[in-house]
Structures are given as structure tokens and as C-alpha cells.
Write a protein that binds this DNA or RNA. Sequence first.
DNA 1: TACGGTTTGCGAAACGTTTCGACAAGCCGC
DNA 2: GCGGCTTGTCGAAACGTTTCGCAAACCGTA
Lengths: 353, 353
Amino acid sequence: MTSLRDVAERAQVAISTVSAALNGTRPVAAETKRRIELAAAELGYRPNLLARGLVSKRTRILALLYPTPHSGFGLTEMQFATGAAEAAGEQGYHLLLSPENADPVEELRYLTGLGLIDGVLLMEVRLDDERTEFLMEAGIPFSMIGRTRNPEAISYADIDFTQTAQNAVAHVAALGHRKLAFFNHSPDAYSAQYGPTIRTGEEFAAATRRAGVEYVGDFCADSAEEGREAFDRLVAEHPDVTALAVISDPAAVGVIAAAAARGWRIPQDLTLILVLSSARVAEMFHPRLTTLEPPSGELGRLGARMLIDRLQADGDDPPQQRLVPCRLVVGDSSGPPPAPGERDDRTIDRTGT
Amino acid sequence: MTSLRDVAERAQVAISTVSAALNGTRPVAAETKRRIELAAAELGYRPNLLARGLVSKRTRILALLYPTPHSGFGLTEMQFATGAAEAAGEQGYHLLLSPENADPVEELRYLTGLGLIDGVLLMEVRLDDERTEFLMEAGIPFSMIGRTRNPEAISYADIDFTQTAQNAVAHVAALGHRKLAFFNHSPDAYSAQYGPTIRTGEEFAAATRRAGVEYVGDFCADSAEEGREAFDRLVAEHPDVTALAVISDPAAVGVIAAAAARGWRIPQDLTLILVLSSARVAEMFHPRLTTLEPPSGELGRLGARMLIDRLQADGDDPPQQRLVPCRLVVGDSSGPPPAPGERDDRTIDRTGT
DNA sequence: TACGGTTTGCGAAACGTTTCGACAAGCCGC
DNA sequence: GCGGCTTGTCGAAACGTTTCGCAAACCGTA
């Protein structure tokens, strides 16, 4: 490891001069500077981040905090991480992957106490998130991917649920549908606090209202079986439904099976949309499903960039907040609604299977 | 930030004594130690990682290096990362996410020059990987998830392709199949160097040979269209094939479509297996596909643990090497082969579609 | 020639640790 | 009662930077 000292010796100047020349923090005579840069290059000098961080209190390291996932990580979450890492890298920052243990706040206290971290990027933010309170109090710079219930004072990048729902509703309305159903995650302890779940539901309701489309909301757990049941329930109560949006991949599998069992074809008899899922997943289905794909990578990038901006403008300018809508990827599961009576509705006894 | 010095003052001892007491590096009188620990707890003292690292040359930070993915990151890759982060966390280590730019070796040189990193975890290792050469030469501890062509001297965790192929072949053989086809990734510039692609192909060939099962190997790019074409080609040349393993998710979509177009049912007319894909993806298919699921999380964990072991045993004990087979998740796409002539083979003109 | 101002470079302190030689005190056996 | 050993503590140096006060050299102007 060659150090500043080695460079100084070789260039025949003081250590402090080398530092000034290399960082441009102070004027250095052109000739001297040239000599120093040459020496540094010859020796392959790399500044030691630890030493620098020790005195400057800046490490250019960010931590990405994520709860150990309850149900395995999806593609979406991964893309937050890689997006953030990429954006950080571009700005000369590094990203530390920090899985949370049982006590996220304790974890945070520990992590920030290390002096290793300039700021924190929060993933999987809940509507009331204790982590934000801790970070605010401790005065540690952070930004969120997602947002809390009242995020006014905090920088965040999140999905634009309003726009997303509106686009989706516009899509089905343009095809001629007058009634849209939506299967949300089941309102268990987790989802009750999980922003995307709540907001998607609310915004679908609102968007249909605005568009004059009839709306049916229901819930189902993330399994094919539950998707099947929810679908049967839906058709029983609303036989005239022609379009359905589902937020869970496995539930969609169940829906498709149940629809097929009923003799419904997609998209002729039912338009099906996968919400908050990646197009790559949607392609696995047959037919290829229309998807509202979250801009995960971009959200990760935005989150990281906001945090870095905040760190560099050490004045306290107002928090940045960005909402990005999902991309509507139209697949083969979107079509005009069936004419009344056109649907070949047969009842099939599935219990025998 | 409370420092060692604050603790020392409060406990009325020298700084060095506090350090010794807290780290147990030297014997300290029980009473003194108690006083110090009390003071540390009261002040909420956290050792500063930068300062510690500066002198001890150990930061307990590992870097996870991954190429910016050519085709988007899969679930599999994500699980390497989270698995590694988890294992690292358990041992008091941290994991730095490092996307590689155009020049991986330059990136490595920079990263390791920072003095921030104790060791490197390599992902997406190619058969001839320039990164390993650099790391060996530079004497930087590292381990691999995957392995090079000749990995004898390096620690790695990889899939046990031999066992995996054998299990898969045993599975179809037990069902009564006598002929197995395998669609590998297309042998383009990338795959030609990519271990899993090469090894899976070789091992499937070898395992069928050992089991006395006839083998047909072919390639197809990662798209439904190519999967379709490959399947049609296969059936044209080998109409008696009854079992097929596919390594690419999108290709499997094409295969299923092409089989359906032919009137073949799965699994009655064809047993289909998805290779190196997650069970979560396999569930999206209808029917739910039998899968060889890579033990990604575990490989990540193993890789991290090996690296940490290596760092802690600063003697040079031999490299650790672990192979873990894929988990065979039997879905609804596995069944006995059709009786000869049983298959309802109709030729369908798809060109009109 | 003298003088204020500017340019340029130097040296030392500081950041928070670890490490290690020195040393004081207490205890042992003879 | 004294040398030698053990035990416990201290102080200082070192890690590789950044930062900042200061001084030397040089400029143009009076």
C-alpha cells in the first residue's frame, strides 16, 4: 500500500502539499502539481478510505437496510438494490447491504454507531416505520424507497400509485370494460402496514370512480388456492365482471386456473392484469399477462441519488420526493369485454379433481 | 460519538486499559474491567470501525462483486447476495455491493486499493476469469460462487452439477422414460464461458449415459420463440422423445406452447423439467413445472463463510470447496411416458398465426 | 529601498483506535 | 530483607489522511 508519504517523498514535497494537489483543496503551483501527479501515478497511489474517513467524517458509504424478507425476495426488491448500487457507484459512493435482524432500530443504532456510514437508504418502508423516527432523532441522513404515512419531511422515491391506477383503469376502459375487480393482498398484520398494498387498493378505487367504471375490491392471500377461491367468490357475486387486476403472482395462477375451469378464455371472456409484477414474470404465464411493472431499478437509483444529494449539500435544503408510475406492459391478456351472453358459462365441478 | 477516551475518563483509567478490557486482548483486573464495562454501557460506546481498521488493517467488510447483468438479474442472483449478506452479518461482517463497470479488473484494483475491503466474494464466475488471476497475484483473500475451469487452489461454493443431473435423470428414469432431451442456453460468446451452462450440459450427457438413458442435447436462446423452434426441431428429429429438460424460463414457455399446439399434454405426453430455476417461477406455469432449484441462498452463505474462515485463520490452510446439488421440486409436469402410439399426434400449421 | 499583499509550500495537530515497551506494586522463596 | 517473577496499568507511537496556522519567497508599487 503506497501512502501519501511515499508520493511526497518521491515528488520531493511535503505530505500536505500532495494532499492539496490531489484533492484540489488548495492552490498548488502548476509545476509542483504536475510532479506530484506524476509521482502518484507512477506509484499507483490510492487514497486510503479509512484514514480519510477518520478525519473527514465522510466515508462515501451508504447502507441499504432491508428486513429479512418474510416471503423470500422478489425480483422487484433485488432491482431496488442493484439500482441503488449502480447510482451510488456512479457518484463514487459504495453501498453496504444490511439485512435487518429482529430489532431493526437496534440494528440501525449499531450500524450508524460504527462511524462507517454516511447515510441510510430504507427499503420496505411501512406506513408507520419506527426506523424513520430513530433516524430523524439521531440526525442521520436517509431516504426511503417507498414512504411512510406522512413523509412530508423526508426524501423518498416511490411508485406513483395514483397515476398507475389511472393508467390501468384507462387501459381497461378504453377496451370497453365497465366493471373492474381488484384482488389485493390479504389485509393481515403485515399488509395492513405496507404502503403499496394500501395505496394500490385506494387508488384503484379512486381511479375507477373518476373514470365512471364500476369497482369491486377483494383480498386474497398469495397462493394459487386463495386466488382460485377469490375468483369463484367474485364470479358468484359479480357475474358481469369483465376485467380483473391481481396484485399477487401466485394468486393470478389460481385465477387463471379457476377461469379455465369455468370455461372462460383469456382475454376473450376476461381481461386479466398483473399489478406490481415484473414483465419477466408475466411472460411465464399463458397467455402472457398484461402487467403494471414497478420501476424498481429507477426507484433504487432515485433513492440513492437523493441521499447523495442530501449528503453533499450539507445545508438543509428541502427533501426531494419523486413518484414514478408503473409501466403498463400490454400483454395478451387484455381485450374487449365479451358481449352480454357471449360468455360460454359452464359450471364445472372441481372438487372431484 | 463517544470515544474510547470518554470511557477512559469516566472509568478513571488509561485509554489503553479500556481497549484491553473491551477487547480482552490483555488481562485486566476484574474490578477495573467491571468499572470500564459499566462506563462504556452508560455512555453507549461503539468502537469506531474506521479507526480500528486503520491500525488493525481489518475492517470486517467484504465486497460482493457482480457484473452488471447482461439480461437483468434473476431471483437466483439475488439470493446469492442476500444469503451472503446474511452469513456475513452473523459473523459480524458487512457486505459491500459492488457492481462492476466495463473493466472488472480495474474496478477490483480500485476497490481493493481503498483499504476498505478485507476480502472479495466473486459472483458470476466464468471458466476463465481474469478477476481470479488479479486477486491471486495481489494476494487478496477471496472466494467464488461458482468456479473457474481449474479452481483447485481457490475456495468456492458451486452447484453440484453431477449430482443434480444424476438426480434429474434418476427422476425421469424412475418414471419409465428411456430418452431425455435437454435444451441448453445457446452457445454464444457469453455462455461459452459460463460454468453452469457448460457443466449442466456435460453432466446431463454423462448422467444419461450412466443411467442407460438415450440423450439428445440441443441449444436455444432465452426466448419463447426459440423455445418453440427448438421443440419443433426436436420432435421432427426425435419423435420418440418423452422427457425434456430446459434451462431457460422463457424457452420453457415456448416449449409448452409448441407442445400444446401439437396436441401434446403435459405430463401425459411429455415430461417437462425446468433446470436451474426457482420453484417460485415454476409455479407460474400451468401445469406447475418440476424444477431443479439451485441452492442460491446457501451458496451465497457458504461463499461468505468460507471467505470469513479464510480471513480469520490467517495461516494458509487449504481452500474450502463445497458443491451443493439443486433441489428437485417435483411439480405436475412429471409423469410416466406415454405408451407407444398413445400420443395423439396431430400436426398443426402454426404459420398462419 | 521599504512595504503590504499574494502565492506557495511546510509542519504539526487531529481523527479514534491498537499495540507494545515500560514500570510500579505485590508476592514468592530463600 | 532482597532478587526475581507476576500482575495490572500506563503512556506513546503508529495507522494515513485532512486541515490550518505560519513562514518564505516573490510581486508590484510607493
